[in-house]
């Protein structure tokens, strides 16, 4: 039945590509979360009026974030080829895509983190200071927990952007559904492959969106 409608799909290849997309998205998401949170915190803490107010660090971080956000992802991958090669020992395959994915997405997520932290009630931070809290306590017990729903919905948006990035990376050899659609679908003019890959990506996006919304709602006690 399936083979009748979609004669060119090899189920095995399709599953492998799907797994690779999941693999790249998930690992890149973890890396993006860590790096982006650090960038966002750095921006928030060193901004004017921040706890560690520091013009130099703020400006350097802001420039880094803005520059990497400005470069289109497809060009960023090419730009990072030497770096990737140095870091991973190869420029092909899902793992080799990770540095570019993380560096492409973390600045974007960093800005979302900064915005989320700015939304945290200043009075609450002040209350913690009045109790004698250290900055570390304020970050871990006040800022991050109070911003958590926004951090999670930001991460959802970032995850969806990352799925798109993995598809682009796929076209230049990173594997995954983008790779499968391009080499096995588009180049061979087997458009059923392109179609099924599109559907699979939409499904993955929906899954991430659903999980993200669910967690964010669960966390939000406001």
């Amino acid at each position: 039945m399936l083979t009748e409608w979609l004669p060119n799909i090899k189920l095995e290849d399709f599953w492998e590509a799907t797994e690779e997309t999941f693999y790249m998205t998930s690992l890149a998401l973890v890396g993006t979360f860590i790096l982006g949170t650090l960038l966002g915190l750095l921006l928030y803490l060193t901004m004017k009026g921040g706890i560690w107010q520091n013009k130099v660090i703020y400006s350097v971080t802001a420039v880094f974030v803005n520059v990497f956000r400005a470069i289109p992802f497809i060009i960023l991958i090419l730009l990072l080829f030497p770096f990737t090669n140095f870091l991973m020992g190869t420029i092909r395959g899902p793992s080799a895509a990770l540095p570019a994915l993380i560096i492409g997405a973390a600045p974007f997520y960093g800005r979302l983190v900064e915005i989320a932290l700015k939304e945290v009630d200043k009075g609450v931070v002040e209350a913690a200071q009045a109790m004698g809290a250290k900055t570390r306590t304020i970050i871990l017990r006040v800022l991050l927990p109070e911003a958590m729903p926004a951090l999670v919905s930001g991460l959802t948006v970032t995850a969806i952007a990352l799925i798109g990035y993995t598809a682009m990376a796929g076209v230049i050899g990173a594997g995954g559904l983008g790779n499968y659609a391009y080499y096995f679908g588009f180049q061979r003019r087997d458009f059923d492959v392109v179609l099924i890959c599109s559907i699979a990506i939409v499904v993955i996006v929906f899954i991430f969106q659903f999980i993200g919304d669910f967690i964010s709602n669960k966390l939000d006690k406001r």
């Binding site: 009630d121 209350a127 109790m131 004698g132 109070e146």
Partner: peptide, 22 residues
């Protein structure tokens, strides 16, 4: 020293300033 001293000075705010996540 100030952080320790602050633990002995309670503060109550107009807008309560509670953590909504707790």
């Amino acid at each position: 020293a100030l952080r320790v001293a602050r633990q002995d000075i309670g503060m109550v705010f107009q807008h309560f300033n509670l953590l909504w996540s707790r």
